[in-house]
Simulated assay, not measured.
Amino acid sequence: MKPYLFLLTLFCAVILSATAAFAQDRRENVEAAKVAFLTDKMALTSEQSQKFWPIYNEYEAKRRELVKAYRGGYRQDVDELSEQEAKARIDSMFAVRERELDLEKEYVARYNRVITAKQLILLYRGEREFTKMLLKRLDNGKRPNQ
């Protein structure tokens, strides 16, 4: 019985590793498409692109960490929260949004050393357009017979 358990465990580990690798590849493909899309939308020169993307990636990583920290307890069922805990959750949400805004202001100053204000507006528009496009493609992929 133990050899079968070992083989089953090994098989599950291989499947999980393959799934994780596939998800990582997909994420990398989406990120590469986003970079290409935004570079085009913003009409970045090669010099701007070379300086801009490391700053942008640094900002995105810090922003993700902020959101991740907030969402840690977010999945808890609302019905399980006391009124006081719910108020604390709302206060925490606003605190994270304020930190996000402070972070964005900090990075806008850094972006403006590399790109123009118009390019920054195009960045914000492009991010929204890319997200809409991605969601539309995901939605189309879920529909049967398409």
Rank of each mutant, 00 (worst) to 15 (best):
Ile115Phe: 09
Leu135Trp: 10
Asn29Ile: 11
Asn57Met: 12
Val35Trp: 04
Ile90Gly: 01
Leu5Arg: 09
Ala18Cys: 11
Thr39Val: 06
Gly72Ala: 13
Leu101Ser: 05
Ala69Pro: 05
Arg99Asp: 03
Asn112His: 14
Phe37Ala: 03
Trp53Phe: 15
Arg99His: 00
Phe6Asn: 01
Asp91Arg: 14
Gly141Trp: 02
Ser49Phe: 02
Tyr111Gly: 06
Val67Met: 13
Ile15Lys: 03
Phe6Gln: 09
Ala23Phe: 11
Asn145Cys: 04
Phe130His: 05
Ala36Cys: 09
Gly141Ile: 08
Lys118Val: 06
Val14Ile: 14
Trp53Lys: 05
Gly141Phe: 10
Leu101Asn: 10
Glu104Leu: 13
Thr39Pro: 09
Ala88Pro: 06
Tyr111Ala: 07
Arg64His: 02
Arg143Thr: 00
Phe6Trp: 13
Glu85Gln: 15
Phe130Val: 01
Thr45Lys: 13
Asp25His: 14
Gly72Tyr: 00
Leu138Gln: 09
Phe6Lys: 12
Ile15Ala: 08
Lys132His: 00
Pro144Ser: 05
Arg26His: 04
Val30Phe: 08
Lys34Gly: 00
Ser49Leu: 02
Leu38Phe: 06
Leu138Pro: 06
Leu81Gly: 06
Arg110Thr: 11
Arg128Gln: 05
Val108Pro: 04
Pro3Val: 05
Glu104Ile: 05
Ala23Thr: 08
Phe52Leu: 07
Tyr74Asp: 09
Leu134Asp: 12
Phe6Pro: 01
Ile15Trp: 08
Val78Arg: 14
